[in-house]
């Protein structure tokens, strides 16, 4: 037992995640330098922020209790948000179908595939608020800009997910339809659509839910709906009304999330 015994060290260090010490310390130093630079280079206006405490107090004091006095305005804004969400979902989902087929590697020829992907990437990359500003400039304030914005927003998500689903379809079913002599459309309807339909319905419900959320936001830059109501209330320092609106938005989002979650659980 004694002569063959290896000698083991008396200290132990956890093997580092990055084995190369130069790279390890270099990376750590780089992160540190970046953090310092990032914090110091940003134009913080501390003085203005310091006054914030008093302002926060005023805002909170002004917002409590929430005021539902102008509930007519609130309900109108809310209904408008729902309408925007519904129309944008319908438009977005319909538009997503051809774009998804364009962006599916297994169905589309290369140039069309690239075009489809490019559309999706652009639609996904811009935050809806930016898209909303452009539409507000192009078609004016109001719900139309909101609907158009959320159509773009829906395409970015639905077309991407749908394209992925189309790329995953079982080709055996397509071949089976072709082998019985079905035409292009019948093949599409019997072999492709049934495979993507459940996902498509699930996506539509999900998108309706996220469009409702987004419509509250794009309204802030003038694209209609409850967001516009909120931005107006804030602009006029009606903090009690703003709190009431926010509470309604939060409540609506929770309800819509619950409903869409339930529906998707059953369909998906």
């Amino acid at each position: 037992m004694s002569q063959t015994r290896e000698t083991w060290p008396e200290t132990w260090h956890r093997p580092p995640m990055i084995a190369n010490p130069v790279l390890r310390y270099g990376l750590a130093a780089a992160v540190l330098v970046y953090a310092l630079w990032a914090v110091t280079s940003l134009p913080f206006d501390w003085q203005r922020a310091a006054e914030g405490l008093a302002r926060a107090q005023r805002i909170f004091a002004g917002s409590i209790p929430p005021s539902f006095e102008r509930s007519g305005l609130l309900i109108d804004g809310f209904l408008e948000s729902i309408k925007i969400a519904i129309l944008a979902t319908v438009g977005g989902v319909l538009l997503s179908i051809p774009i998804a087929f364009m962006a599916a590697k297994n169905l589309a020829p290369k140039p069309i595939y690239l075009l489809g992907r490019a559309i999706i990437i652009v639609a996904r990359s811009f935050h809806p608020v930016i898209v909303a500003i452009l539409f507000v400039k192009a078609v004016g304030f109001g719900p139309l800009a909101g609907v158009l914005t959320l159509i773009v927003y829906s395409v970015g998500f639905v077309a991407k997910m749908l394209a992925e689903r189309i790329e995953e379809i079982d080709w055996g079913q397509v071949e089976a339809m072709r082998s019985v002599g079905a035409g292009y459309l019948s093949t599409l309807f019997y072999a492709v659509f049934p495979q993507i339909m459940p996902r498509q319905i699930g996506l539509s419900i999900y998108q309706l839910d996220s469009n409702l959320r987004a419509s509250a936001v794009v309204g802030i830059v003038g694209a209609g709906g409850i967001g516009s109501t909120l931005a107006n209330a804030f602009g006029r320092y009606d903090y009690d009304f703003a709190l009431a609106i926010t509470m309604v938005i939060v409540g609506a989002i929770l309800v819509s999330e619950g409903i869409s979650g339930q529906i998707r659980k059953r369909i998906w």
Binding site: P43, R48, A49, G52, R55, I59, F234, V250
Partner: peptide, 21 residues
């Protein structure tokens, strides 16, 4: 989670004033 970043920003701009804080 239920309050969007932009709405939070609206509130904090009112508190801290415009700016990156």
């Amino acid at each position: 989670r239920s309050v969007n970043t932009i709405i939070w920003a609206l509130l904090f701009v009112a508190i801290f004033g415009p700016g990156i804080i």
